[in-house]
Design a protein around this nucleic acid. Structure first.
Lengths: 336, 336
DNA sequence: GAATTGATTACAAACATTTGCGCAAATTTT
DNA sequence: AAAATTTGCGCAAATGTTTGTAATCAATTC
C-alpha cells in the first residue's frame, strides 16, 4: 500500500546487502548465491517492487517499446493488424504504443515526433492518405530508429515494407468480374501517393489487356478515401452514357460509400452494378447486398510479419548495415 | 545525422558553459541571460537535441503518459472515445498509450501490469465483458495511479466514472417502441457484471411499468456480447410462442448479430421484428434495413470528459484525498 | 603454511537531467 | 562610496539501475 516507489535500495537496506547484489539477484546473475537470491525475491515480492523503467532506460538506452502509427484504429483491417503486431511484440517482452493519424499528415507528424521524444526502439507505419513526402519519416532514420512500413508504403523509397500482393489481387479480381460476363469494369481507386493505389491500377490494366478489353479513362477514378469524395466519383460514374456494370473498389469503406451513393441514385448495388472490394471486413457480412467478392488480405498475418521483421532488425547487430527488406503477403479473392 | 544521442552535456561543452546553465536555459529559467539562452537554443537546434525522457522521468518521477484500456479498438464507440481522449490529453502535453482487452480478463490484466511497470501517470479503463472482480484495478491504486472508468464501469465500487445516462436512454427507447404500437418488447442485454447492463434493464422495467405492460421473463435475455451467444439468445426469442415484436439491444453489434440471426431464420429484421440499439455507429447507416432507432451516446464527448477528469486529478494536489467523481452524459434517441 | 583458486558480495562509476546552494559581477540603493 | 540587491552562472548532489572491477572469505593445492 506504500505510495512512494520501492527501489532496489530499499530491498538492499532491508536485507543489509549491497544494491548491486540485489540488482544481480533480480537478474538471476550466476555470481549471486542461491540463498541470497531467494531472500531478495522474497522481499521484492513482499514490498511489491516494480523496476523503474526510467533508470533502466537510462542505463541501457532501450525502451523495449515500438510505436505504431496507422490511419484509423476502427478499420478492422488495421485493428486486426495491430492485434497481430501486439501478439508478436509482447511475446518478446516489448510494448506497443499506438497512434492514429486519421489520414491527416499533421497527426502523423505529431505521432512521429512523440515516438522520437519517447525514444521508442522501432516504428511500424502505414502512411496517411495525405502523405506525399517521405521527409517526416526521415527524422526517425536520423535518430537511428528502425522503421517498417505496413500496407500503405511510400513509393520510390528503399525502406522495409510489408504489404499484400495487390497487383496480383487486382488482376484476379478484374478477371473474376470479366468472367462473370461484365465488360464495362470501372475502378474506384485510392489516392495516387499510395503505392498500393498504383498497384491496383496496374493489376486492373493488366487484366483488361490480357482480356483484350479496352481501357476506358472515364472508368478510372480515384478518391481521397473520404465519403464525400467517393460519392462524388461514384456519381460521375453513374452519369456516364454507358454506366459501368462492375466496379473494383479500393477497400470495403469505399465500396460502402459507393454503394450507398448508388442507392440514393436509384441504382441497386450488386444487382444493377456489381462491386468487388479489398479487405473483406466482417461488417460486409451484415449487409443485405454485400459486394459480390472481396480480396482477403490477411491483416493479422501481415501485422505479425511486420512485427517479426522489426524485431529482427532490432535484435540484429546494430553495427551491420541493414538492407531494406520487402515482404509480400499473398491475398485471396473471397466470393460472397 | 549523428546516431549517438545528443545531450545537454554536449551543448554545454560546445558553448563552454555549465550543464546546469544549459538545462535552465532550455527551460526558459528567468535567471539565465537572454544571450546565453539564444546561444543554447541555437546549438540545441543545430545538434538536433531531443531531451532524454528517461533522465527527466528519473528526476521528476512523471511520465506524462496516460494508459487507456478498452475492449475493442475497432468498435467505433471506443475509437471515437479514444480520439476525444487523445485530443484533450495531447493538448496538455501528455501522451496516450492504448491497449485492447478484446473482452478478455487476461489481456486486461496484462495491460494493467504493463501500465504499472511503465509508470503511466493515470489510467482510463472500460472493463472487459469477463471482468467481475475489481481486484486487478486495485493494483493501480496500490501504486498510487489514478483511475477513471469509462462507460463500462464496475458496480458497487467508489471510483471515478464517466458514463452515459443509460437508464434514461433505455427508458426512452422502450417508450418509443411502445408508442410505435408494440407491446411485446424484448431486451437482448449485456452481461450482468457490467453496471450498464443493469441500467438498461432498469430503464426497460421502469418503462414497461409506467406503461402498465407486463414484464415477461422470457423476453429478457443477456449475452456475453459474442456473436455465438447473441445468435443463440435471439433464436430462443424466435422460438417463443409469442415472438417479440421489438427488441432493445445492448449495442449495435448485438443488434447486427441478432438481425443476421433473424434473417437466417426467415424473419425480416425491422419489418417482422423491430430493433433499437445503443451507440448509433456509422456502419448502421450502410445497412439496407437498419435498426429503427439507436441511442447516440456521444462517445467523443464522453472521451473528452474522461480525459478532463483524469487530468484534473493528475494536476490536483497529490496530497489532498480525492473523492471519486461520477460524470453522467445525456444520450439522445436517434430515429432512423 | 603460503599461495592459488573459486565463489560471493561490495564499491563506485556511469547514464542524462534537475535543482538547491553558493559565488561572483553588475546594478541599484543608502 | 559602501551596502544591499539582483542577475547570471557553476558546483555538486540526487534520481534508480547496471556493470566493471575490487574485495572478502573459504576451500583447495603445492
Amino acid at each position: 500500500m506504500q505510495k512512494s516507489q520501492v527501489t532496489i535500495k530499499h530491498i538492499a537496506q532491508e536485507l543489509g546487502i549491497a544494491i548491486s547484489t540485489v540488482s544481480r539477484a533480480l537478474q538471476n546473475h550466476p555470481r549471486i548465491g542461491l540463498k541470497t537470491k531467494e531472500r531478495v525475491f522474497e522481499v521484492a515480492k513482499r514490498l511489491n517492487y516494480v523496476p523503474n523503467p526510467a533508470a533502466i532506460l537510462l542505463k541501457k538506452n532501450k525502451t523495449n517499446t515500438v510505436g505504431v502509427v496507422f490511419p484509423y484504429l476502427q478499420e478492422e483491417f488495421f485493428s486486426q493488424a495491430i492485434t497481430g503486431i501486439e501478439d508478436v511484440i509482447s511475446a518478446k517482452g516489448y510494448n506497443v504504443v499506438i497512434s492514429q493519424s486519421k489520414d491527416k499528415l499533421e497527426r502523423e507528424n505529431r505521432a512521429i515526433k512523440s515516438f522520437i521524444s519517447s525514444r521508442v526502439d522501432g516504428v511500424i507505419a502505414s502512411i496517411s492518405a495525405e502523405t506525399t513526402q517521405y521527409y517526416p519519416f526521415k527524422e526517425l532514420e536520423n535518430h537511428g530508429i528502425p522503421l517498417v512500413f505496413f500496407d500503405r508504403v511510400p513509393k520510390d523509397v528503399a525502406v522495409n515494407k510489408v504489404r499484400g500482393n495487390i497487383l496480383e489481387a487486382a488482376f484476379e479480381a478484374t478477371i473474376f468480374l470479366a468472367k462473370k460476363g461484365f465488360s464495362r469494369i470501372a475502378i474506384l481507386n485510392g489516392p495516387s501517393n499510395l503505392e498500393i493505389s498504383n498497384e491496383r491500377l496496374e493489376g486492373y490494366w493488366k487484366a483488361l489487356k490480357s482480356l483484350n478489353l479496352p481501357i476506358v479513362q472515364q472508368y478510372i477514378k480515384s478518391t481521397d478515401l473520404t465519403k464525400d469524395s467517393t460519392s462524388k466519383k461514384m456519381e460521375e460514374l453513374l452519369l456516364l452514357p454507358e454506366k459501368p456494370q462492375a466496379i473494383l473498389c479500393f477497400n470495403d469503406y469505399v465500396a460502402l460509400f459507393a454503394m450507398q451513393s448508388c442507392r440514393q441514385n436509384g441504382v441497386i448495388p450488386n444487382t444493377d452494378i456489381h462491386f468487388v472490394s479489398f479487405a473483406n471486413l466482417p461488417i460486409t457480412a451484415y449487409l443485405d447486398n454485400p459486394p459480390i467478392a472481396s480480396v482477403e488480405q490477411f491483416a493479422y498475418k501481415m501485422g505479425e510479419q511486420a512485427a517479426t521483421l522489426l524485431l529482427k532488425i532490432l535484435e540484429s547487430n546494430e553495427e551491420s548495415e541493414i538492407i531494406p527488406e520487402e515482404i509480400i503477403i499473398d491475398t485471396e479473392l473471397i466470393i460472397h
